[in-house]
Design a protein around this nucleic acid. Structure first.
Lengths: 212, 212
DNA sequence: GCAAAGTGACATCATATGTTGTCAAAATAA
DNA sequence: TTATTTTGACAACATATGATGTCACTTTGC
């Protein structure tokens, strides 16, 4: 008991304590996406997530804390991933036409939903009505996407919408995209991606083209 | 034990067995609106609903069945109420202009949300991610409102949107209204009702005015 | 008045699940 | 090798709550 100052962590299997902690958290979030996406948040148990991750409950409570924080972490992860993908798509585009940018962004969004139904279910359905904290998180994501829309529309010569309504209108545009995605999801993604993109784009272009 | 055929019910306190059953169900649904609206569905217990209704658990299980069916019944009740109110508003209107009809309908919708926040919370937030059955219920309500929009838009001389996209676009319009309502709700209904209606109407009119 | 149906307060049961603790085996440092 | 840390499988606990049962009291019909 003379000296145990370095209890803070020791390498194990070639990884430092911090690296292992991060890796466990990553695996738990990944497992959370699968389990919540398959079973729904209400039916998701800590045990099931741990089994999917190949970890024990202790690490769950160390890395995440509780079920609700898992959902928050999963959601934040998915939103960030989605935003990054869309941003990358837009930035890589050779065009600056708002309409074409919108098409690219919407394609990225809807494509991501179709290609990862587990994530889509969480992003579209499982996130609401869980708790005030999680609801705020989702509202924050909506605000982010609304901001993206505003930034894109700002490239237009004249504002299409009265200033004091801009935030509500862009929130509405986000909602139209989400609901189209929900309908598509519920139908099992039967429609062509192009149809879905075109539907959302119809609304976007109409609003942008309308005179203030 | 010679004869007890009429076990089917006896008047009590001036009401028949059926009347009392209906009244209990009504009170349970009313209590469900209050408790779910205040505490959220996840935090709603059968005991709390029964206490709010002034009834005992036995009647809950007789009249409703379980927690999830309560949410379904509450939601169906609220949607029906909302649809009836909006339909009445529209039918009583002296105009046939789609734009004016839309303004009336949207005023009814947003006004109802503001005037009954408990119901609004259930309609906007608490209904998703509970179970496949309840999710289908909400999708069905979305489809109903989308149909209402299409019927209104049909009065226009020429279709504003390609036929094969009509369902997705109208789903998107419903989504824009819902998300505007959600934003408004989350801000504590600070904005004027007129601003909110005008925002949704901006999107509606733009889509309707756009050329196919 | 009296037996039976209806009601309400409460007890009880079963179960699920979040959460923490135990303990032995594997990996590391000395 | 040996002691210590890390890990994983699993037990154990407390709690909440859905769901059903008990029992005394009220109301009704005869």
């Amino acid at each position: 008991m003379v000296e145990t100052a370095k209890t803070a962590g020791r390498p194990y299997r070639g990884a430092s304590a911090d690296e292992r902690r991060d890796e466990r958290k990553r695996r738990l979030i990944e497992a959370g996406i699968k389990v919540i996406g398959r079973e729904g948040y209400a039916a998701t148990t800590v045990r099931a997530v741990c089994a999917e991750a190949g970890l024990t409950e202790r690490y769950f409570y160390e890395a995440i804390g509780d079920r609700e924080r898992l959902l928050g972490a999963v959601y934040a992860h998915l939103v960030q991933q989605l935003q990054a993908q869309i941003a990358q798509t837009i930035l890589a585009a050779g065009t600056e036409s708002p309409s074409e940018l919108a098409r690219l962004g919407l394609s990225g969004y809807f494509g991501a939903m179709r290609d990862n139904p587990d994530a889509a279910r969480i992003l579209l359905f499982e996130i609401l009505g869980v708790s005030p904290e999680v609801t705020r998180l989702s509202q924050s994501a909506v605000a982010d996407f609304a901001m993206l829309i505003r930034m894109t529309a700002r490239r237009l010569p004249q504002p299409a919408v009265p200033d004091q309504l801009e935030d509500l209108v862009t929130a509405g545009l986000v909602g139209s995209v989400v609901f189209i995605a929900m309908s598509w999801f519920m139908e099992g993604f039967k429609r062509d991606l192009d149809d879905v993109v075109e539907s959302a784009l119809t609304i976007f272009n109409a609003v942008v083209a309308a005179k203030a």
